[in-house]
């Protein structure tokens, strides 16, 4: 069984919502980002989403764009990313969701799947690869126990929700705002009804991400969602304290345990 399923099954029994933090591999450098990932695990992460830095992150807001730019100063290859994941998995074997744009995967082709599998990747989220274009990638990962994670957005209508869900495995990622990634003070009121609509169609766990930044938001969302995904807010701690590694780790630890304690 894929580890993503195992964790969601366990949490479901305990009636709890998963905390999935997101960071970029190599921001501000490989060593520090590995420590950040471990800190997140030690402070309540149930799974972790790891971004592969890309030159043209079209779906990302300023914070993640800058994070990728910092990471790309030390050219990070796919192999570096796989080594990173291997080391993290050796530390603690929680599900890893690999977040990327399609081109770095496409240039490797089926070699990507072998590398990702050996590194211990459980799910791959390719933000610019909708189900319509996913055939090639499905072919790459076939026979490997790797899930492709699909997204739903506030703009997705009901027939299309059904269509996307027919491809979904592990969990479906509901994009809470019409926009790019990045922390927002307020989230749309419609999230709850949208998630309820998804749940009417499928049993698959629903994770909510984009824009989430506060304990209050998390508390509200955990009433109906199976996972909350937080990226920009965590990465902001890196940007704010770029020359003070211990402060980065301390603030991220505090923030994560706060989030964890707000999840029901």
């Amino acid at each position: 069984m894929n580890k993503i399923d195992t964790v969601f099954n366990k949490l479901r029994l305990a009636n709890r919502t998963a905390f999935i933090p997101f960071i970029s591999i190599g921001d501000p450098d490989i060593k520090t980002s590995l420590e950040i990932a471990k800190t997140l695990i030690n402070n309540g992460a149930d799974m972790i989403e790891l971004g592969f830095p890309f030159s043209d992150p079209m779906a990302d807001g300023k914070v993640i764009q800058k994070s990728y730019e910092r990471a790309l100063k030390n050219t990070i290859s796919m192999q570096d990313a796989f080594d990173f994941i291997k080391r993290l998995k050796a530390y603690r074997d929680i599900p890893v969701i690999f977040f990327t744009y399609y081109n770095p995967v496409f240039v490797l082709g089926s070699k990507f799947a072998g590398g990702a599998y050996n590194a211990g990747v459980d799910g791959v989220l390719i933000v610019d690869l909708p189900p319509e274009e996913s055939g090639e990638f499905t072919n790459y990962i076939k026979k490997r126990d790797i899930y492709q994670i699909f997204l739903l957005a506030p703009t997705t209508n009901t027939p299309r929700i059904k269509y996307v869900l027919s491809y979904a495995k592990g969990f479906v990622y509901y994009v809470s705002v019409t926009g790019v990634t990045g922390a927002r003070g307020t989230l749309p009121m419609s999230i709850r009804s949208e998630v309820e609509e998804i749940k009417k169609i499928s049993q698959i766990p629903v994770g909510i991400g984009f824009g989430i930044s506060s304990k209050e938001q998390v508390k509200e969302i955990s009433k109906y969602a199976d996972a909350v995904i937080i990226g920009s807010k965590i990465i902001q701690f890196i940007e704010n304290n770029i020359n003070d590694k211990s402060k980065i780790l301390k603030e991220i630890a505090e923030f994560s345990s706060n989030i964890k304690s707000s999840l029901s």
Binding site: Y102, P130, A153, P154, T155, R160, V175, G179
Partner: peptide, 11 residues
């Protein structure tokens, strides 16, 4: 093809 994020697919 169309390699875009889900938010844009409906548009």
């Amino acid at each position: 093809g169309r390699y875009i994020s889900e938010t844009l697919m409906p548009a």
